[in-house]
Simulated assay, not measured.
Amino acid sequence: MPYSGPLFERVANAPSVPPGLPLVIALTGFSDAGSAVSGLIEYLREDVEQTPLLIFSNDVLLDYRARRPIIAFDQDHLTDYRPARLELSLATDVLGHPFLLLAGYEPDFAWDAFTRTVLDFVSEAQVSTVAWVHAIPMPVPHTRPIGTTVSGSRTELIAAHSVWKPQTQVPATVGHLLEYRLAEDGASVVGFVLLVPHYLGDTEFPGATLEAIDRVSTATGLMFAVDGLREDDREYRERVDEQVRGNEELSRMVRGLEERYDAYMAGLGGTVPGIDEMELPSADELAAELERYLASRPGDDDKRAGNRG
């Protein structure tokens, strides 16, 4: 049983929140293809100025055995303990425009209480719009733009950016619940599902993070400096392309995905390209080859963090 206690703590001496700000939600959890959301959170925490307003309790919301915190071991002693973080903060974009940011892990427990807390804050702060992003693996090629499925109450964004509009049932995330309750309350809310190439789903794909940032900008008008991340994505794609070119089987599978994608986007198909499992090319070999190749890059995490600007 989870610990029973206060769900969150208000930060003492936190700045006052101007009314009418947009709220951006980025929560890792059930599905994070290409590390899109975790990359977005990392970018926002490292490159965006922010001040916590509410700090949520790990003891109440987090299953430690499912998502263990990190501790550093230095030869014969422990040097650093890094617990998970879930915070609601006041942040500013590159132009100094303020916004609210709810970022961190998806709660394992107390979804209803967590959702009520966020909705109460949205009302208290008179939030103007809410935007959230998550990512799922799809049989699409990395050589084409990342598509999105868009939901919520902002019909203009749905019409402009939703390339796949399924009628289905999916395992819910707390982001879905927040969107559902916000829409019930008549709030202006939009959710973006990034459709990430399935064979890159288990890698850290900078392009997925870039797409997440772009969707946040589209929904809020906020601006972010991403030159370093674009360079990371360029190098990443070059490595993927090199690996694909060197393997005929991989090349053949990617070409098949491209043909399905192009036919779908041209309006020749009624479903997502390759979604029929009978026609879906196996990605096992492709994913294994790419994972081995991409994992061999020395110092990539340090370089990516240093280049983001």
Results as ranks from 00 to 15, higher is better:
Leu294Arg: 02
Glu231Ile: 03
Asp120Pro: 00
Tyr236Pro: 02
Thr92Ile: 01
Val122Pro: 12
Pro137Cys: 06
Glu289Tyr: 05
Pro98Ser: 10
Val127Thr: 08
Asp108Ile: 00
Ala288Phe: 05
Thr173Ile: 06
Asp112Val: 03
Glu277Trp: 05
Ala36Lys: 11
Ile25Trp: 08
Pro2Leu: 04
Asp233Val: 00
Leu250Gln: 00
Arg308Cys: 01
Asp112Gly: 05
Glu238Tyr: 07
Gly228Arg: 05
Ala225Asn: 13
Gly34Asn: 13
Pro206His: 05
Gln75Met: 03
Ala159Asp: 15
Gly306Asp: 08
Glu87Leu: 07
Gly186Ile: 08
Gln126Thr: 11
Arg304Tyr: 07
Tyr180Ile: 05
Val133Asp: 10
Ser35Gly: 09
Val94Pro: 05
Val272Leu: 13
Val133Arg: 04
Val127Ala: 06
Glu277Pro: 11
Asp112Trp: 06
Ser57Gln: 13
His198Asn: 14
Pro107Gln: 03
Asp241Gly: 00
Phe8Asn: 01
Asp185Lys: 13
Gly34Leu: 09
Pro139His: 09
Ser128Glu: 14
Pro273Leu: 07
Ser188Leu: 11
Tyr81Asp: 03
Ser296Gln: 06
Met223Asp: 12
Ser128Ile: 07
Asp108Tyr: 12
Val127Met: 07
Phe205Leu: 11
Ala72His: 15
Leu182His: 08
Val60Asn: 11
Gly267Ile: 03
Leu100Cys: 13
Gly201Cys: 09
Val170Gly: 07
Gly221Gln: 13
Val163Gln: 12
Met278Asp: 15
Thr220Leu: 05
Ala131Val: 15
Val118Gln: 01
Pro197Asn: 02
Gln169Arg: 14
Pro166Asp: 08
Glu277Asp: 03
Ala287Ser: 14
Leu222Asn: 09
Val122Asn: 06
Pro137Tyr: 05
Gln169Ser: 11
Ala84Pro: 04
Thr209Glu: 02
Ser31Lys: 11
Ser188Pro: 09
Arg304Phe: 06
Lys303Ile: 03
Asp32Trp: 06
Ala125Glu: 14
Trp132Asn: 09
Gly147Glu: 11
Val163Asn: 10
Val190Gln: 08
Arg144Thr: 00
Leu44Ala: 07
Val240Gly: 02
Ala125Tyr: 12
Leu95Ser: 15
Val130Arg: 01
Thr129Val: 04
Leu210Asp: 01
Arg255Phe: 06
Ala208Asn: 03
Val127Leu: 07
Glu279Val: 03
Val11Ser: 01
Arg304Met: 13
Leu194Val: 13
Glu242Pro: 00
Pro18Ile: 11
Thr79Asn: 07
Ala266Met: 14
Leu194Tyr: 13
Ala295Gly: 06
Leu44Met: 13
Trp164Gly: 02
Val127Phe: 10
Ala187His: 15
Ala225Gly: 09
Arg215Pro: 14
Leu294Ser: 01
Gly191Val: 11
Thr28Tyr: 06
Leu53Asp: 09
Val118Asp: 05
Asp202Trp: 07
His161Thr: 00
Ser16Asp: 15
Ala131His: 06
Gly29Ser: 08
Glu249Lys: 06
Ala172Gln: 10
Arg65Phe: 14
Leu101Cys: 04
Val272His: 04
